[in-house]
Design a protein around this nucleic acid. Structure first.
Length: 494
RNA sequence: GCCGCAGUAGAGGAAUUGGCUAACUCACCACUCUUUCAAAGUGGAGAUUGCGGGUUCAAACCCCGCCUGCGGUACCA
């Protein structure tokens, strides 16, 4: 099992699971599932000020919604736990001590203010604003004395002054960093917590992570990580730096661009599989042609070799299109359930979902076909079928339900009432006959009828609609109200 | 400022990695059919591959310079 692939997603709980994080998680998960490795979820909560339990819960929920199951992590015990960094302090302390013994790190007593001043001075002198490593030159005596006095201190890593650190990134290739440009960086904060740069390295090594797949915002931190791996005598994992996901203005994706956290997409009616599919297309492609993937197909097709290196703009329109493709593949049964859930959640007036209702809803959904592209749309589409009167759109009434056609509908209603068999074909016959008798286009009656029935001017075949609504409801809608011809919708209620 | 990454139609993104007219998808436009709408049919437009040089018979691809965006330069991750 020495060669087992182990990858991880390591979010910091400072907010909900967001598109960028979800994509990173997805690529790790896909790779693990593809090669039969392990996918680990680790919570990086070393920032005591910003980490919250709510965020942890939100992230777990987001992962679960997407169906990105982890093999080790919160709620899933494993051999490498705990999986919260705040519970792994002993490890960091142990390795920090080890480095201290080897003189590879040193305590730094400078306050943040002093550091800022040092850097300002350096800038003023025309140098790079790097910490000058002065505490690294303190004598043993001085150090013990200051330590004894109970002063706050951080621990800094002594970076080499010469040479280069080379990252062989599996996506970008060779990236060279000059060591003299790296300042002695902090590995432990004065509150005793490790910094990110230290904790990732210790944890990735201890958890036997073989492939580090993360956002490319970490690429500049990687030389620090490599130096730490070397200092600690750990074996280097393979690094993959994924391109960023940007907003429409090519700026880092944020709330300004609309929905960014996965639960918002859930609320919009995006299906988890569609979200996964779309996210996969951001930075990865199979052949540039295939765009639709089920979860299974994605696992099968995915390859880190086909991950690109240029940032991608998040396009909600394409997400919606892809979502509709996934939605269309759903069974009627699934659509009914999803639509019902939303109707219920939205407080629409629906009876309990029994077999009859499911059957009825299924028929409507089938009739609407591709017009319904997601659950919320379905809910709003079905709503009028469960009310006495729909909401009448003024524009629709004004256009199609003026006095004349409205009057014609009353005649139609009378004929509908007396017809022997109430069905689509019969209603259509009646409407067409009526149109012919009055010498008008059937379309004008059809349009009027549609608006009378639904309140809007868009729907599938009206006659089939009638059949689904049932004679009683159709009559109520035609006769129950009068419409104002001045364009202001309803005039009176009878 | 310094260091790093990236730049192919509006967006995603292909191009056997030096070789045909730079694919394909979304978005957009037009026309058609219809009972309105539609992811229904048909067609269309949109790219000096960021810019400028160079190497070559041949450059999206290699070399040099520049520009732009982003990231790092934190006791954030």
């Amino acid at each position: 099992m020495a060669d087992e692939v182990r990858v991880r997603f390591a979010p910091s709980p400072t907010g909900n699971l967001h598109v960028g994080g979800a994509r990173t998680a997805l690529f790790n998960w896909l790779y693990a599932r593809k090669v039969g490795g392990k996918f680990i979820l680790r919570v990086e909560d070393t920032d005591q000020g910003r980490s919250t339990l709510d965020s942890v819960l939100g992230i777990l929920k987001g992962m679960q919604w997407l169906g990105l199951d982890w093999d080790e992590g919160p709620e899933v015990p494993g051999d490498y736990g705990p999986y919260f960094q705040s519970e792994r302090l002993d490890h960091y302390r142990g390795y920090a001590d080890q480095l201290m013994e080897k003189q590879l790190v040193y305590p730094c007593f400078c306050t943040p203010e002093e550091i800022a001043r040092i850097k300002d001075e350096q800038v003023a002198a025309g140098n790079d604003p790097n910490y000058d490593g002065r505490c690294g030159c303190l004598s043993q005596d001085q150090v013990s004395k200051m330590l004894g006095s109970g002063m706050d201190y951080t621990i800094r890593f002594r970076t080499p002054d010469t040479g280069e650190t080379i990252l062989y990134d599996q996506i970008r290739g060779k990236v060279v960093f000059r060591n003299d440009l790296l300042e002695d960086f902090v590995i432990r904060k004065s509150d005793g917590m490790p910094t990110y740069n230290f904790a990732v390295v210790v944890d990735d090594a201890l958890m036997n992570i073989t492939h580090v797949i993360r956002g490319d915002d970490h690429i500049s931190n990687t030389p620090r990580h490599i130096l730490l791996y070397q200092a600690l005598g750990f074996k280097l994992p393979k690094f993959f730096h994924l391109p960023m996901i940007l907003g429409s203005d090519k700026l880092r994706l944020s709330k300004r661009h609309g929905a960014v956290s996965v639960h918002e997409f859930d609320k919009m009616g995006i299906l988890p599989d569609a979200m996964l599919n779309y996210l996969a297309l951001l930075g990865w492609s199979l052949d540039g042609k295939t765009e639709f993937f089920t979860r299974k197909q994605l696992i099968k097709a995915f390859s880190l070799k086909r991950v690109g290196s240029n940032p991608a703009v998040f396009d909600p329109a394409k997400l919606n299109w892809l979502n509709a493709s996934h939605f269309m593949k759903l069974s009627v049964h699934d659509k009914v359930e999803g639509v019902y859930d939303i109707m219920y959640a939205e407080g629409m007036d629906v009876p309990d979902l029994d077999e009859d209702l499911a059957h009825q809803m299924g028929k409507i959904i089938k009739l609407y076909g591709k017009r319904i592209k997601n659950f919320p749309e379905g809910a709003w589409t079905l709503k009028p079928f469960f009310e006495t009167y729909p909401e009448y759109l003024t524009a629709a009434v004004t256009e199609h339900l003026t006095d004349e056609p409205a009057a014609r509908l009353q005649v139609i209603a009378d004929r509908i009432e007396t017809m022997e068999v109430f069905c689509a074909e019969e209603v259509e016959d009646v409407v067409r006959e009526q149109a012919q008798e009055e010498g008008v286009e059937a379309a004008t009656i059809i349009h009027a009828l549609r608006v009378a029935l639904l309140g809007c001017s868009v729907s599938p075949d009206v006659f089939k609609l009638c059949e689904l609504m049932g004679r009683e409801l159709v009559l109520i809608r035609i006769r129950g109200r009068q419409w104002s011809s001045d364009g202001h919708g309803l005039k009176t209620e009878i």
